[in-house]
């Protein structure tokens, strides 16, 4: 099976006043088509840099980023992005926010088709009835749902998410996990999720990549062999608990602390 995303030996350093600051050094990630890859690691280890590399917003100093068998050298229309900040446009309604990528990717698509596509997604995430509202009229969880719809409205090959649920309270976050699971069941896409939440990585991921402290390399890859139609209860079962313990230990190593 060929991989949709292939990151091989990527090295990157930011130029700062104090000299080059290496953030990635020996990063390898491979994500087969349709798989969900969760990336965890200590704070400031270069996880966000990884998202910008896959999206083609940056080119690494060394190493290769491949998408769909093509070397990534710049932005492409087949990518969707979601961030911790939902970055909805306040002057547009929720519906028009979701449509935004279609205006760039498919400028000749009729307005009615765009709306129909956006409404399908809004229904899926439980936002039907809110399409005419402004973002400021919605709660944080609802805004993030709208942001997810916008990220996949143009049917991207890859959805890249940088801690999209990081600013939400725990119960809202768990709701969003389930929404995410249902979205993937309805329309498959390959996904890279950056997160700090180990439970999130196990609940959503097909594989969990642990990054080391800065400069980040691939420290461990955990295969999450749990069924696709997971419920929240699965996190409390021994198998998932074992994985969480393993990830916790890996994070400890990544942080440079061996003791407990």
């Amino acid at each position: 099976m060929t991989n949709l995303i292939d990151i091989k030996g990527v090295r990157h350093a930011y130029r700062t006043k104090a000299g080059p600051l290496p953030v990635l050094d020996g990063l390898d990630v491979a994500v087969p088509e349709g798989e969900f890859c969760a990336v965890v690691g200590p704070s400031g280890c270069g996880k966000s840099t990884l998202t910008r590399l896959i999206a083609g917003l940056m080119v690494p100093d060394a190493g290769e980023v491949w998408l769909h068998g093509e070397r990534v050298t710049g932005p492409r229309k087949t990518v969707g992005m979601a961030f911790q900040n939902p970055v909805l446009l306040e002057w547009r309604t929720i519906l028009d926010n979701v449509i935004l990528p279609l205006e760039i990717v498919a400028p000749r698509m009729p307005r009615a088709d765009r709306e129909a596509r956006a409404m399908t997604l809004l229904k899926m995430v439980g936002l039907d009835g809110f399409e005419g509202k402004r973002p400021s009229e919605l709660s944080g969880g609802m805004r993030q749902r709208a942001s997810l719809c916008r990220a996949i409205v143009h049917k991207p090959d890859v959805l890249i998410m940088d801690e999209p649920f990081g600013a939400l309270d725990n119960f809202t976050r768990e709701d969003l996990w389930q929404t995410m699971r249902d979205l993937r069941a309805a329309e498959p896409f390959t996904c890279v999720l950056i997160t700090h939440d180990l439970r999130e990585s196990v609940f959503l991921g097909d594989q969990v990549v642990v990054l080391s402290g800065r400069p980040a390399r691939t420290q461990a890859v955990l295969n999450v062999d749990l069924p696709a139609d997971r419920t929240l209860d699965i996190l409390y079962e021994p198998k998932a608990q074992e994985m969480l313990h393993y990830l916790r230990d890996q994070i400890r190593v990544a942080q440079g602390r061996d003791g407990h």
Partner: peptide, 12 residues
């Protein structure tokens, strides 16, 4: 905010 730019820039 750079994210605002990125949502469109990532689409080319």
């Amino acid at each position: 905010e750079p994210e605002y730019r990125d949502i469109l820039r990532s689409l080319g």
